[in-house]
Computed example of a mutant assay.
Amino acid sequence: MKRKISIYFLVVILMFQFTTLTFAKETVSNSASSAIVMDVKSGRILYQKNIYEKKPMASTTKIMTALLGIEKSKLDKEVKISKKAVGVEGSSIYLGYDEKVKMKDLLYGLMLRSGNDSATAIAIELAGSVEKFAQLMNQRAKEIGAKNTNFVNPHGLHDENHYTTAYDLALISREALRNKDFKEIVKTKLWIADREGYKHFYNKNKTLSQYEGGDGVKTGYTKASGRCLVTSATRGGMQLVCVVLNDYNWFEDSYRLLDDAFNRYEPFCMMKKDGVIQTASVENGKKKNTKIVGKEDVILPLTKEEQKKIMMILKVNEKIQAPIKRGQKIGKARIYLNNQLIYTTDLVFREDIECKNIKDKILDYFSNSNQF
């Protein structure tokens, strides 16, 4: 029998030490009850403080509401506002009963002005009620890996059963920031809605103007939760997300945490999209060989010392049969640091290769015959 799978080991740098990954914990003083800094690309934790403690999250709840709004509705869809979405307690974009508002405008009102009425309108539009929408929120949270989170509403008004952890909220924010529409919304400083009356939505998140590379995400506050903030920033192709919960010094602490991470870690390119990884032979194809390439840019946050210890292992199919298609998956690259898996990505074919036809096989036959 032919072996279908073989493993090829590509050692990027030979120094590979069997130690445990260490993350910064208290290197930066801050007043947050819980805090985390996470790399958006890889999910690697760069700072942590009480990241698994369950806490109320206030309006940072709306990150999940916005993600579901984008995933489950067309942005240009008109939403008819119900009575239950009018006059909701707290921040508002002043929706009117029976008013028709595009989903896009509701999302901008949700994330820039923190409209609780907008959150309620989105929930009712997508699920029929706040309660049913909370079920969707919890289902999506579990899919993302946020196992210690429970939503009971789409806006974050206090409820004893409405909570998250810094780690879970970072996971949810990371998932949202990988969505191009969400990413565009939260980095917008001003949005003019297509409606009468209150339509100029200025972003409450000072990160966009105060912090170099700041591009998100959401503020939140209730008396029970204290000040909660999710910030994101991108420098040198590396995007980080920072979560602080119950932090009276929320913006300043977030900036210090992000500064520390950007100073200690550098964006290290492990793989370029369409960059050639290796050559593979093709059976029964019009071409005998093809290139295996990376599916995406893989840029990881690493310290200078860690860059000396990184290793990549490739696992690809040994026997490749035509036909093949450009972008078709052929294997995986697994990246390890100190014997710990930190990232996995797909390897793909760079080109289309068709099967040999009868004419090709006849030419091959005579070509091989002439060699004797």
Rank of each mutant, 00 (worst) to 15 (best):
K286S: 01
G156Y: 02
P323E: 14
Y255M: 15
K359E: 01
G236E: 05
G226Q: 04
I63Q: 05
L240M: 07
S129F: 02
G109C: 00
D168A: 09
M64C: 11
D168F: 10
K272R: 10
A119S: 09
D159C: 04
K2C: 06
Y167A: 09
N203H: 05
T231V: 15
S91W: 07
K102D: 00
A24I: 00
K329P: 12
L341M: 09
M312L: 03
K359F: 03
V217Y: 05
P323S: 14
D159V: 06
A85Q: 04
K287D: 07
A123G: 13
L171P: 00
K2A: 15
L229W: 14
I5L: 10
E196C: 13
I63A: 07
R174W: 03
V243W: 06
I122S: 01
A127I: 03
R350P: 07
T165Y: 04
M238R: 14
E252W: 00
M1V: 07
A224M: 03
G226E: 10
D98A: 14
Y265A: 06
G214V: 14
F349H: 11
L314Y: 15
P323Q: 12
L46A: 06
K361V: 11
L112S: 02
K189H: 09
Q139G: 08
F182Q: 11
K180G: 10
L208P: 06
F9G: 15
A233D: 08
F201P: 05
N50R: 14
